[in-house]
C-alpha cells in the first residue's frame, strides 16, 4: 500500500487519539464521571483505524460494546461520545445508551451492540436492503472472537454468502472471550477457516499493523464491490487492558501481556515510519497537544451537557410523530 506522509500522520494521530481517549475514560471512570460497563480498546487501535480508512461516507458500521475506537475512527465526534458516557442529552445516543451503545445517524454508525454476535444479523439485513434497492454501498460488521461460538455468527455468515450481500465481516480476535481463552472454547481456533467453510473469501491478518489492516480492508471493500459478495477478515490482536473495569485478569499471565505490548500498534507503526524515513516528519509533541485539546474540549462539553428531564423518561420507546 502506498503511504504518503499525510496518510501516515492521519493513521498515527487517529490511533493516538483513541489511545488517549481511552486513557481519559479510565480516569473519568475512577472519578465516577463515567459509570456502567466500560470496555477499553487499548491495544486494538490499528484495526479500527485501518478498517475505517477503507470506507466511504455511504458505508454503514455495526460494532460491539468495545466500540469507542470504531466510533472515533468512523468520524463520530469525541464530544458527543464523551457526553454520552456522562449520560447527557448532548450525547450521541442522548444518554440512553452509554459506553456500550454509541449510535450516530449522521455517519451511519449503528452501535454499540452488547449482545455478543447480536449485530451480525442486522448487518446482513442492512446489506440486503442495499442490494434490493441497488445502492452501491457496504456494511461493515465488527465483532470479537467470542461471537464465533454463537449461532447468530453461523446463521449470518451463511445468509450473507447465500444471498451474496455486500458485508465486510471483521473479527477482532483478541484471544479471549471475556476471560476464557479461545483454545478452551473452539475446536478450530483459526477463525477465518470457519468463514471459508461458508464460501466466504477470508483472510487472517496482523491486527496490530495498521498498514496491514488498511491494505486488507481496502482490497476487501474493492472485492465486495466487484464480486458482489461478502468478505471476512480475521485480525489477530490483543487487548492490553482488562476486559472491563471489573476484571482482575486472573486468567492470563502478565508476561503474555508484556509480550503483546511489544507489538503495540503505535510502536509498530512508529518503527515502520522510521524505516521509511517518515517519522522525523511527524511532530509527535504537536500531535499530543492537539489530541489533548480535542479530549479536553470533549470533557468540558460533557461536563456542561444537560441531564434529560425525568418527564421525558418514557420517550423513544415508540416513534414520535416526526417518524411516522
Amino acid at each position: 500500500m502506498e503511504l504518503d506522509l499525510n496518510k501516515a500522520k492521519e493513521f498515527y494521530k487517529e490511533m493516538l487519539l483513541i489511545r488517549r481517549f481511552e486513557e481519559k475514560c479510565v480516569e473519568l471512570y475512577s472519578n465516577q464521571k463515567i459509570r456502567g460497563f466500560l470496555h477499553l480498546y487499548i491495544g486494538e487501535e490499528a484495526i479500527a483505524v485501518g478498517v475505517m480508512s477503507a470506507l466511504s461516507q455511504e458505508d454503514a458500521v455495526f460494532a460491539t460494546y468495545r466500540e469507542h475506537g470504531h466510533a472515533i475512527a468512523h468520524g463520530v465526534s469525541a464530544k458527543s461520545m464523551m457526553a454520552e458516557m456522562f449520560g447527557k442529552m448532548e450525547g450521541c445516543s442522548r444518554g440512553r445508551g452509554g459506553s456500550m451503545h454509541l449510535f450516530d445517524g449522521a455517519t451511519r454508525f449503528y452501535g454499540g451492540s452488547a449482545i455478543v454476535a447480536g449485530a451480525l444479523p442486522l448487518a446482513v439485513g442492512m446489506a440486503l436492503a442495499d442490494k434490493m434497492m441497488k445502492r452501491n454501498r457496504v456494511t461493515v460488521c465488527i465483532f470479537g472472537d467470542g461471537a464465533v461460538a454463537e449461532g447468530e455468527f453461523h446463521e449470518s455468515l451463511n445468509l450473507a454468502a447465500l444471498w451474496k450481500l455486500p458485508v465486510l465481516f471483521v473479527c477482532e480476535n483478541n484471544r479471549y472471550a471475556m476471560g476464557t481463552a479461545l483454545k478452551y472454547t473452539e475446536s478450530e481456533t483459526d477463525i477465518y477457516k470457519k468463514a471459508a467453510s461458508y464460501k466466504i473469501s477470508s483472510k487472517q491478518i496482523d491486527g496490530m499493523s495498521v498498514m496491514d489492516v488498511a491494505q486488507a480492508a481496502k482490497e476487501a471493500i474493492a472485492s465486495i464491490h466487484k464480486e458482489q459478495a461478502p468478505m471476512f477478515l480475521e485480525c489477530l490482536t490483543y487487548r492490553f487492558r482488562a476486559h472491563s473495569m471489573f476484571d482482575a485478569e486472573l486468567y492470563r499471565q502478565k508476561s503474555e501481556v508484556e509480550e503483546w505490548k511489544r507489538k503495540d500498534p503505535l510502536t509498530l507503526f512508529e518503527n515502520s515510519l522510521k524505516d521509511k524515513n517518515m517519522w522525523s516528519e511527524i511532530d509527535r509533541a504537536e500531535m499530543e497537544d492537539e489530541i489533548k485539546n480535542t479530549i479536553d474540549e470533549a470533557v468540558t462539553f460533557a461536563e456542561n451537557g444537560t441531564l434529560e428531564p425525568i418527564e421525558d423518561l418514557e420517550r423513544f420507546v415508540y416513534s414520535e410523530a416526526s417518524h411516522g
Binding site: A60, Y110, G118, L120, P121, L122, A123, V124, G125, M126, A127, L128, A129, D130, M132, M133, T139, G151, E152, E155, S156, N158, L159, L162
Partner: peptide, 28 residues
C-alpha cells in the same frame, strides 16, 4: 424470489436481517 424470500431455518438471523433491512429503508 427477490421479494418472496425463502430462508434457511435460522430464525435469529432472518429476523435480525428483517430488523437491519427495516433500519435501512425497507418494510419487511
Amino acid at each position: 424470489a427477490e421479494r418472496i424470500i425463502d430462508t434457511p431455518l435460522s430464525e435469529s438471523a432472518f429476523t435480525g436481517a428483517g430488523i437491519g433491512a427495516a433500519m435501512n429503508g425497507m418494510r419487511p
